[in-house]
Simulated assay, not measured.
Amino acid sequence: MTKRDWLQKSTVAVMLSTSLLLFAEGGQAAAQTVDSQYLVKSEKIVQTATSLIGKDYKYGAVGPNSFGSAGLATYVYKQAGLTIDNTIAKLYKAGKSVSTDKIQAGDLLFFSSNGKGAPTFMGIYIGNGQYIYSSQGEDEVVLKKVSDYTKKLLGARRILPEDTGTGTTPEPGQQESDASTIADKVIAAGKKYMGTPYEYGSTRANKKTMDCSEFTMWAYLEGANIDMGKGGARSQANFVKSNGTYTTDISKLKKGDLVFFMAYKGYKQSDYKGINVPKQSITHVAIYLGDDKLLHTFSKESGGVKITNFSNTHWEYRFIMGGRPY
């Protein structure tokens, strides 16, 4: 199993454990209400922490490319819209204490080398019996099993605001239905621009010509009232990572997702053999229509905004990531 496969399975496990808060055994809606914002922030914390695995360890660093033990938690929580302290000692007193048999995704775990005294390192619990921390010994951010560190575990703290009961439990399939409605509106807005001429580096001042990212900008702004700014494809990818959900698994793309690609290197699959995909720069963005189709614009010669096939084309071979900015 590759490291990427392992991380994807971990994320799936987290999502399943989170869903237990929403649905009782047998698929019936749980009786109690939950605060949807709590779940949103918890999932954002897990997703961000997972994306940082492999980043460098550096004492006292708070990101974005290297992290100390507490700095990792500070950075991850900030991406979820929460400001917390940046020292282990202060975080060990923050929030409220949680029994280690009742920890939830997003809780902070604290350890010492001998399991006594003050904590010397800490991590973020992501569910499924796993946590992520910036390891001085391994010199990078790593994923570990809590069960391997029970003798060093001092305790857990919950910094996330508790469920308030102000939200309501969504009906099964409701969230996917809402997302599908947004996707349909984005696609409809995008299709209005079919045939609009392509212009590299278009100004965004008018809609007479468009490059790839101006097209997706207008589709999401007009179809879903989501303003991703006037930046290019890389900027939109960062917006998705910060504000929505994303995947590097092409099979998990959903209708309406933004799809991001590396530079063109040839039309054959062999032209992309051996490429380190995560290190490639994003140069293009499209909207996934489902049914193996893309809606985008990429050259004057192609005729502007159009629909193209996805699988078994250079677009498939150039795929880096995809996701939705909400």
Rank of each mutant, 00 (worst) to 15 (best):
Q130Y: 05
Y75A: 03
F111T: 07
G115F: 05
S42M: 04
V98M: 11
S97E: 11
T168H: 12
L91H: 05
T87V: 15
P172V: 10
D56R: 15
I124K: 02
E162M: 11
S147A: 13
K90D: 14
S36T: 13
Q175I: 15
Y92G: 00
Q37A: 09
E43Y: 08
P170C: 10
L153Q: 04
A70N: 03
A49I: 07
Y75T: 05
K96G: 03
K152S: 11
Y57P: 04
L52E: 03
S112F: 08
Q175W: 06
A49N: 01
S112G: 07
V98S: 08
T168E: 12
I103H: 01
K44A: 06
Y133V: 06
S112P: 06
S134W: 02
A105M: 09
S97M: 10
T48K: 09
V76Y: 04
S113N: 03
G167W: 08
S135E: 00
S42K: 05
L82F: 12
Q174W: 10
R158W: 13
V146D: 01
I159N: 04
P161L: 04
P64T: 10
Q130N: 03
A105R: 05
K144P: 08
Y125T: 00
Y38R: 14
Y77I: 13
K116W: 14
D148Q: 13
T100D: 13
R158Q: 12
L82P: 04
P64M: 06
K58H: 07
Q79C: 14
T150I: 15
K55A: 12
L82K: 11
G115S: 06
T120Y: 04
L160K: 00
V34Q: 02
D85W: 14
K151W: 02
Q47H: 12
Q174F: 11
N65C: 09
L154T: 05
G54A: 07
I53W: 08
M122Y: 02
K41R: 15
Y57I: 08
K41F: 01
Q174M: 14
